[in-house]
Design a protein around this nucleic acid. Sequence first.
DNA 1: CTGTCATTTGACTGATCACTCAAGAAGTCA
DNA 2: TGACTTCTTGAGTGATCAGTCAAATGACAG
Lengths: 203, 203
Amino acid sequence: MTAPIPNTATRIVDAAMQLFGEKGYGSTSVADILAAANANSGSLYHAFPTKQDVLIAVLRRYLEGIWPMLLAPAWEGVADPVERIFALLDRYRELLKITDCSFGCPIGSLALEIHEPDPPVRALLAANFEAWVAAVRTCLDAAANRFPPEVDRQGLAQLVLSVMEGGVMQARTHRNLASFDAGVTALRHYFRLLERQARGLRP
Amino acid sequence: MTAPIPNTATRIVDAAMQLFGEKGYGSTSVADILAAANANSGSLYHAFPTKQDVLIAVLRRYLEGIWPMLLAPAWEGVADPVERIFALLDRYRELLKITDCSFGCPIGSLALEIHEPDPPVRALLAANFEAWVAAVRTCLDAAANRFPPEVDRQGLAQLVLSVMEGGVMQARTHRNLASFDAGVTALRHYFRLLERQARGLRP
DNA sequence: CTGTCATTTGACTGATCACTCAAGAAGTCA
DNA sequence: TGACTTCTTGAGTGATCAGTCAAATGACAG
């Protein structure tokens, strides 16, 4: 019934996940992580060979959390597959809003911060993007009959990710949601045109 | 006639511009900059109070370079305003291609790397984005009669930036141009639908 | 040539970095 | 209980960080 007491390794990953999201990987020191996790350096290095292995654990946690932490809450009570895409985008908008446009998508930030990622790090960043795109693609496939058949739904899902990441980047830089909203509005308009085009083809 | 010999401050900014683009701000040490610029630390700190002031000089240089270094070469021989937008996107594609998808947009990388930027840094990042968006907006305005009049051309220009930045982010992460191309293709399709919609309104 | 000021030199500083390790505590078997 | 393993402690390591400064040099005016 009661929540299990998290062990040290779990506490470290929890703390690192938050800190990497807030300050980035490079600007978060091991000492920061230890302070936030109430742990000692020996405990961290007993569980993780290097700081990079903490990052890998964090990226794995993000990957595992995509469904329970992101998609499930975003899609609760939203049945329409296309609306699910915009509900997902709205989660990021909310995140930006409640953090005054300072916290965006941690995966995107890490992907651009780490310029020469070691293969396992890059693979996990890519896997996170792939899982996100796959989720959007699932929605697009579910609504496939509303789009022209020749539409590249995988490419369209990647566009949705670009709109989100690009919108987050601009919103954070301008400390203003307007550019995020503009991207989403344009995407909505594009989807409407696609649906109209499909209806025109099968009237 | 001959090129002027660059002074130390110029050499430092040159070196920093390249290094910040390649490795990011945090991962570039002052020693890295000094080595690349063939200068001593005293010279750097004579010209710039802190490392951050070097970043500011770099961002100013990017801002000044948008027209001569980016837009002018991209638009040479391209008259059609909409094609100019795609010519600009193609420059980034080329940059990704020749660097094996490792070098993208330095402004975007810095914007996401620096999580709590000091006001002057954030202002310059924002100014760079604004200048880029304004250039795209100029193209959209020049082609205004081809789009439905109710289209938000400023928002559309911001969408173009998102497509570029999001595409660069995904291309770098996957080490693959496919997702970048998918975004550009979808954008092209959206523009075509917009033009078709405008023609339908004024047949 | 002399005085003045701008620039450059490079050794140096203290802080902070990721990481180590010997010692001890805590858990888990018999 | 005792033997054994797993985990935790926290002071300590060398490397590297951004930044300093007194002295040397260069550029130019009178």
